[in-house]
Structures are given as C-alpha cells and as structure tokens.
Computed example of a mutant assay.
Amino acid sequence: MTDSLLAPNLAEIRDEFLAVEERSRLQLLLEFSDELPDLPERYRDHPDLMERVLECQAPVFFFVEVDEDGIVHLFATAPEEAPTTRGFASILVQGLAGLTVDEVLAVPDDFPQMIGLSRAVSPLRLRGMSALLGRTKRRLRELA
C-alpha cells in the first residue's frame, strides 16, 4: 500500500501507530479514546438519529453527514468504559475529517489492520472498527 492511496490524516495515524513498539500501541489507542470529540448538540439530544454499530461489543453509535462542499463529517459515540472501542471510533472520526465522499470511499477496508494492533486487541474489536468504517461507506453510498 502506498501513501498516495491513503488519505493524509489516515496515513499520519497509521504511521504514528507503526512508529511505536507493538506493546505501546494499546496505550496510543487509549490516548485516542480520550480525544473522541463530543457529539454536536443536534445528535446528543436525539440519539434516535444515530445508527448503532451492532458488530461492536460496546454500544457504538454514529451518524454521517456530507456538507454543501462535499466534505464528510463522521460523528460517533462510545462509552468511556470501552476505551479500545472508543479509540477506534476516535481514529476514524479524526482520520476521515475533511475528506470528500470519494476519498472516504477509497479508504482501504483493511485500514484497521494496517495500524498494527492485531496482537494488541482482539479480532472481535478489530472487526468492530472495520464495521464502523464499512457502515460509514455504506451510508455515504446511500446519500449519493
């Protein structure tokens, strides 16, 4: 995979994970969990507008918007008691920020495996992150 195929935000996140020793990657994921942006009020007050990611062990909800300039905005929520899941949501929220629909759709489906966490977290948790990415792409195709 060349960097030209991966959006700059995601390439930076991937490189950040791969630059640290394998045993430090879980700590980095936990740091991302602390950086998950709060939901905008319009979703905080209306959780019924959000979609649940059923593949995640913890209750993860998300909503995707595309603004008038074609920029994707991913909003997600995950409980603080589920820091790895929350970290994955934060990685995607931050990594997809500022991308167009086509750029998000071009994100490799295996991005969660590209950040080097396969030995640090369970395959079930990685599937949850893959599901959040996949559901985001599905929703964007529906909006198109």
Rank of each mutant, 00 (worst) to 15 (best):
L54V: 15
L54Y: 12
L54N: 15
L54C: 07
E55F: 01
E55R: 07
E55P: 00
E55L: 04
C56F: 07
C56Q: 08
C56H: 05
Q57N: 09
Q57A: 15
Q57M: 15
Q57P: 03
Q57E: 14
Q57R: 10
Q57H: 14
Q57S: 12
Q57L: 15
Q57I: 10
Q57K: 12
A58R: 00
A58F: 01
A58I: 01
P59Y: 04
P59C: 07
P59E: 06
P59Q: 09
P59M: 07
P59R: 06
V60D: 03
V60M: 03
V60P: 00
V60F: 02
F61G: 03
F61Q: 12
F61H: 14
F61V: 09
F61T: 11
F62M: 14
F62D: 07
F62G: 06
F62K: 04
F62V: 05
F62H: 10
F63R: 13
F63I: 03
F63L: 14
F63Y: 14
F63A: 15
F63Q: 12
F63N: 14
V64P: 00
V64R: 01
V64D: 05
V64A: 13
E65N: 12
E65I: 01
E65K: 06
E65S: 11
E65C: 05
V66A: 10
V66I: 14
V66E: 15
V66C: 08
V66F: 05
V66Q: 13
D67R: 08
D67S: 09
D67Q: 07
D67F: 07
D67C: 10
D67K: 07
E68T: 12
E68W: 03
E68Q: 13
E68M: 08
D69G: 05
D69S: 08
G70L: 01
G70V: 01
I71Q: 09
I71E: 09
I71K: 14
I71Y: 07
V72K: 07
V72P: 04
V72C: 10
V72D: 10
V72T: 08
V72M: 09
H73N: 14
H73Y: 09
H73R: 13
H73V: 04
H73Q: 15
L74G: 03
L74W: 00
L74Q: 02
L74P: 00
L74C: 04
L74I: 02
F75S: 11
F75D: 14
F75W: 10
F75L: 08
F75Q: 11
F75R: 03
F75T: 08
A76M: 03
A76T: 02
A76Y: 01
A76L: 01
A76S: 10
T77K: 05
T77G: 03
T77V: 11
T77L: 01
T77I: 06
A78S: 15
A78P: 01
A78K: 03
A78R: 02
A78N: 11
P79A: 10
P79H: 10
P79V: 11
E80R: 09
E80W: 02
E80T: 13
E80Y: 04
E81L: 01
E81H: 06
E81C: 01
E81Q: 12
E81I: 03
A82M: 05
A82S: 13
A82R: 06
A82D: 04
A82E: 08
P83C: 06
P83E: 12
P83S: 10
P83F: 04
P83G: 11
T84D: 13
T84H: 06
T84K: 04
